[in-house]
Design a protein around this nucleic acid. Sequence first.
DNA 1: ATCTTATGGGCTATATGCGAACCAAAGGAA
DNA 2: TTCCTTTGGTTCGCATATAGCCCATAAGAT
Lengths: 112, 112
Amino acid sequence: MPKSVTRTYSLYSRDAAALLGALIRETRTELKLTTQELADRAGISRGLLQRVEKGNLKCEIGAVFEVATIVGIKLFDADETALRKYMHQTKEKLALLPKSVRKKCKAVHDDF
Amino acid sequence: MPKSVTRTYSLYSRDAAALLGALIRETRTELKLTTQELADRAGISRGLLQRVEKGNLKCEIGAVFEVATIVGIKLFDADETALRKYMHQTKEKLALLPKSVRKKCKAVHDDF
DNA sequence: ATCTTATGGGCTATATGCGAACCAAAGGAA
DNA sequence: TTCCTTTGGTTCGCATATAGCCCATAAGAT
């Protein structure tokens, strides 16, 4: 981020990331994978994996999702098939909504 | 990252991010929020929100979770209370597991 | 007990994600 | 139709997240 942006996160976001990280660590341990092994499989560094497991919110979501996927954590509690199905439904609903959100629109020539 | 890292993502991760982005967009539209408004509320730029809604995996997870939280999407299908409860359970299970994953250990003086 | 490995934390260099400011096109409202 | 707002693309400068090292400690195995 440019210009030193101090982001604030809601409690919910922080807890969600912390939970996901803890789940990853728990599952990794159960699978008897070292941090280095899991990091290698995910194509990330060991340091990044450590931050992911700690629930660091500045990590890129791709790394987090990838690690979660590798250890078998189902995001949205859905497998690949369910994911695509759910996505299809969402796309359909989205198609029914207006393309842009109109807010006001200055009162056109309401001749004073 | 140093040394030009080209990351690969699994289909599952890509679909999960795409779904989350689509859900965000759908909900934002239903709430009649413009991209600028939602971005402001989340404390991020409009450009970043667009990438989030597209399911870009390079976005920081904090931004994605924050936006999702603001529009009311429940991660893990759980509210704050459920999140903490679930987290507590995970921590407990983690406490029962070994602190480190030992792989082999060279055969010590197996004095043939 | 010793040995060996995993983990955590710190450090540096560098690729890159971010915000900001643009522009053009699309699409509701009047 | 004519606005005018929203949206989707850019591009660019810069703060920083990441990879890749280190080292010290923790902890499992023997």
